[in-house]
């Protein structure tokens, strides 16, 4: 690890990671057509149901958490103990 390091650089994720993950996700949705799935509820049979559910639920949780922070965030020494 000889490359220069930026200690206070904002946290990001490289485009390469994004690309690879997106590719894997695409493959996962494609192979859905070739795998038999035992669906109990009708919506489980919709193509990409779990994929969309995972994405939306995750994003929803994070964005709601962000709103929660506006209400409950306090300074580190709030309780002063």
């Amino acid at each position: 690890m000889n490359k220069p390091e930026k200690h206070d650089a904002p946290t990001t994720i490289s485009a390469a990671v994004f690309g690879w993950l997106a590719a894997v996700c695409t493959v996962l949705v494609v192979i859905e057509w070739f795998v038999h799935r035992h669906a109990t509820y009708p919506w489980e049979g919709w193509p990409g149901f779990y994929a969309i559910f995972g994405f939306v639920a995750f994003a929803g949780i994070v964005l709601l958490g962000k709103q929660l922070r506006r209400v409950i965030r306090r300074d580190d020494d709030y309780y002063n103990d």
Binding site: T11, I13, F18, L28, A51, G54, V62, D75, Y79
Partner: peptide, 26 residues
């Protein structure tokens, strides 16, 4: 699928700056 698309959401939120930054706070 559920888990990796959740991970994808994380990457998207990070890259768009929507993911809440860590803060020194309680």
């Amino acid at each position: 699928q559920l888990l990796l698309f959740a991970a994808l959401a994380f990457v998207v939120l990070m890259r768009t700056g929507l993911y809440p930054r860590e803060q020194r706070a309680i």
